[in-house]
């Protein structure tokens, strides 16, 4: 649905986006992650045809953003980083206006606007002045304007900024519901949001793609070695050498904090939990707890951004 090929954007002498290549299939939700100034917004602006790329090509639904901008724009719903609102307009007339210039047929405008108002929870404020709405409501109006023409591709730049928790949940559900027949790209700083909504993640750093994977694969990256936390009721001196003797175990350390707590590191390709359990039971160490330690998404993210091999 979306194909970006070697996209670059140079401002002055600085490449803000530098050779970004990715593709998004129909029905996918791609999450853009990256620190401030990484180039997420710029990449999205290229895809929506707002700024042309310096190098590279981007295609949306088979149309090139430079050669067929109108065809691309017909198929896109876009929520920019700063919601594009006319502060002096009322909510409903504003949405009517956007529907018109998005090319919604005249007879469908009312029903589409009604639906967008309902989906974004704007019923109560539909007759209010946009400039006087709270930040969260303005964000919702921005979101409503992006979805009201039921676009094939939805591009959302930090869609849940400024929303309250219950609205965030509703909006995430809305985005997920959208993904069935539509394609969504969203950028965010909230890592949990990626876990909850996205099928795939693209981590951008300093204009380049630092990682591009499904969530499971990304999580597995942190696991070239597996780490297992153990807690034993009656540890003996033999614990350390015996554990180390198990095939696949790389290191065993006694957790200095906990009483009878141990940390076992093993080869990522091998699950040694069963052997450990059998050994502990056989030796009568009194196995109280055994739990795999996984890296959190935050840790993986920070490692990737710093360029550490996770």
């Amino acid at each position: 649905m979306i194909e970006a090929n070697g996209l670059s954007k140079v401002y002055g002498a600085r490449a803000v986006v530098d050779g970004v290549t990715f593709s998004v299939g129909k029905g996918e939700i791609l999450g853009f992650l990256g620190p401030n100034g990484a180039g997420k917004t710029t990449t999205m602006r290229i895809l929506t045809g707002f700024v042309p790329p310096t190098r590279g090509t981007a295609r949306v639904a088979g149309f090139d953003v430079l050669r067929d901008p109108i065809e691309v724009k017909r198929r896109i719903g876009y929520l920019p980083e700063h919601p594009p609102l006319y502060r002096e307009m009322l909510v409903r007339p504003y949405l009517n206006f956007v529907a018109t210039i998005r090319g919604v047929p005249r007879r469908d405008i009312k029903s589409r606007v009604d639906r967008a108002i309902e989906r974004c929870g704007l019923g109560q404020v539909a007759g209010r002045l946009i400039g006087l709405l709270s930040k969260g409501y303005q964000q919702r109006v921005g979101l409503a304007q992006a979805i009201l023409h039921e676009p094939e591709v939805l591009i959302l730049d930090e869609p849940t900024v400024g929303l309250d928790p219950s609205q965030i949940r509703d909006i995430r559900a809305l985005i997920k519901g959208f993904a069935g027949d539509h394609t969504v790209i969203l950028s965010t700083h909230i890592l949990a949001e990626v876990t909850m909504t996205c099928t795939r993640v693209l981590i951008i750093n300093e204009g380049r793609i630092a990682a591009q994977d499904s969530l499971e694969a990304l999580a597995a990256r942190g696991e070239k070695t597996r780490r297992i936390a153990l807690r034993l009721a009656r540890p003996t001196d033999a614990v350390e050498p015996r554990l180390r003797g198990l095939p696949g175990v790389l290191a065993v350390t006694r957790d200095p904090g906990g009483d009878g707590a141990w940390l076992v590191e093993s080869d990522g390709a091998r699950d040694v939990r069963e052997e450990i359990a059998a050994l502990a039971v056989g030796q009568g160490w009194g196995l109280l707890e055994m739990r795999p330690l996984t890296l959190s998404l935050e840790e993986i993210f920070i490692r990737i951004i710093r360029g550490e091999a996770a």
């Binding site: 602006r45 929506t48 045809g49 707002f50 109108i70 065809e71 724009k73 017909r74 896109i76 876009y78 920019p80 700063h82 919601p83 594009p84 609102l85 006319y86 502060r87 956007v98 210039i101 998005r102 090319g103 304007q145």
Partner: peptide, 14 residues
């Protein structure tokens, strides 16, 4: 200034 240019120029308009 208000950012609405980003709306106009990402709509199917010339």
């Amino acid at each position: 200034k208000s950012g609405t240019a980003e709306l106009l120029f990402t709509c199917p308009l010339t």
